[in-house]
């Protein structure tokens, strides 16, 4: 059955309200500082928030099945550190190989956490809390508490985050990567069996199991996907900042979860969309980037970010209540 196109359906949807918020934010900032809506500024914004945006997609996978992962910051630190150390010791390696190493390590970390959660029956918050300690500790240990500084990276690696060869000279590499990943995930969640299975497990795990979905495998896959993207971001992060430190990515998990939540992903599982996550991450990026532009002191940024998250989740609940009420009304008639 094809849904009827209705104006009301569009205006009440989560994504539309986020689009309005983003537009309003842009207009407000633009009025105060005309340097905001310029190609250079936008490139800068998307480049610097590529890590959060990509990881938010993986986090959405995990949140969709009702899980959570607070170990991603540490996983990013560990995989990025391993890749950077490898590059330091083998300067001849091509950029792609370094990225692959980081991705493989990230995927292994994610899969391990997934195994612990699905076969060890450890609650996700505890498993990832433990993983957070372990991977962070390992990130320091493999590097023996040293940094990998900019001069130890090859030029090709440092240039990856700054040049535009993937975008045919028009777009920055990181922006191209972000777009490609978002398109792939949009297709994955919308039109593939595996993607729909994730939603099925998230909305009703028992029903999904009865209909023949192997829940444990789906869970492990979701954590592996998050690990994969985190590993990729580990390489992006070190390439972007041209250095690797043991404490990189600390607290990143909170930013990523926040982007998902603002984007309307439910922590109870089963609810969330790729477009929503993009808009959520974009909102957080604009807030983070625009506040200094309109003269808000840097010390106010954290509090404002917190307020936005709280406001977003409460708004989420209120709109959900209204929607549920409307649905009931429809049934009575």
């Amino acid at each position: 059955m094809k849904k009827k196109f209705s104006l009301k359906g569009i205006t009440s949807s989560r994504e539309t309200s986020l689009v309005i918020v983003v537009i309003l934010l842009c207009i407000l900032v633009q009025l105060r500082n005309s340097a905001f809506l310029t190609p250079g500024m936008m490139e800068n914004l998307f480049k610097n928030y590529a890590v959060t945006m990509i990881m938010a997609l993986g986090m959405m996978c995990v949140l969709l099945i009702g899980g959570i992962d607070i170990a991603v910051g540490s996983t990013l630190g560990f995989s990025g550190m391993c890749a950077s150390l490898f590059l330091r010791d083998h300067p001849g390696m091509p950029v792609i190989a370094i990225f692959l190493i980081s991705i493989v390590i990230g995927t292994v970390c994610g899969t391990l956490i997934g195994l612990v959660i699905s076969y060890g029956k450890v609650p996700p918050i505890i498993a990832t809390l433990g993983g957070m300690y372990v991977f962070r500790g390992l990130a320091y240990l493999v590097a023996k508490n040293e940094w990998v500084a900019a001069y130890q990276f090859t030029d090709g690696y440092k240039d990856f985050a700054q040049s535009k060869y993937l975008g045919f000279g028009l777009l920055n590499n990181l922006i191209v990567l972000t777009i490609v990943i978002y398109v792939l995930f949009f297709i994955f969640f919308k039109w593939t069996t595996v993607g729909r299975k994730i939603y099925a497990v998230g909305s009703n795990a028992e029903a999904a199991e009865v209909s023949g979905i192997k829940i444990k495998q789906v869970k492990i896959m979701c954590y592996a996907i998050l690990g994969f993207l985190t590993g990729l971001c580990g390489a992006i992060y070190t390439s972007l900042y041209a250095s690797a430190q043991g404490d990189m990515g600390t607290g990143l998990e909170m930013d990523v979860i926040a982007a998902c939540v603002v984007g309307g992903v439910s922590l109870n599982g089963g609810r969330g969309s790729v477009v929503g996550v993009f808009l959520g991450a974009l909102t957080m990026a604009i807030v983070g980037r625009a506040l200094p532009l309109i003269g808000v002191s840097q010390f106010w940024q954290t509090a404002i970010k917190g307020l936005i998250i709280i406001a977003a989740v409460i708004l989420n609940v209120l709109t959900q209540r209204v929607m549920d009420k409307n649905n009931l009304k429809g049934r009575e008639m």
Binding site: I68, V261, W300, T302, I304, V313
Partner: peptide
């Protein structure tokens, strides 16, 4: 989890 995540950032801010 999500509410205290928000207030965590708010209080620190």
């Amino acid at each position: 989890m999500i509410v205290t995540l928000g207030t965590q950032i708010l209080y620190r801010g």
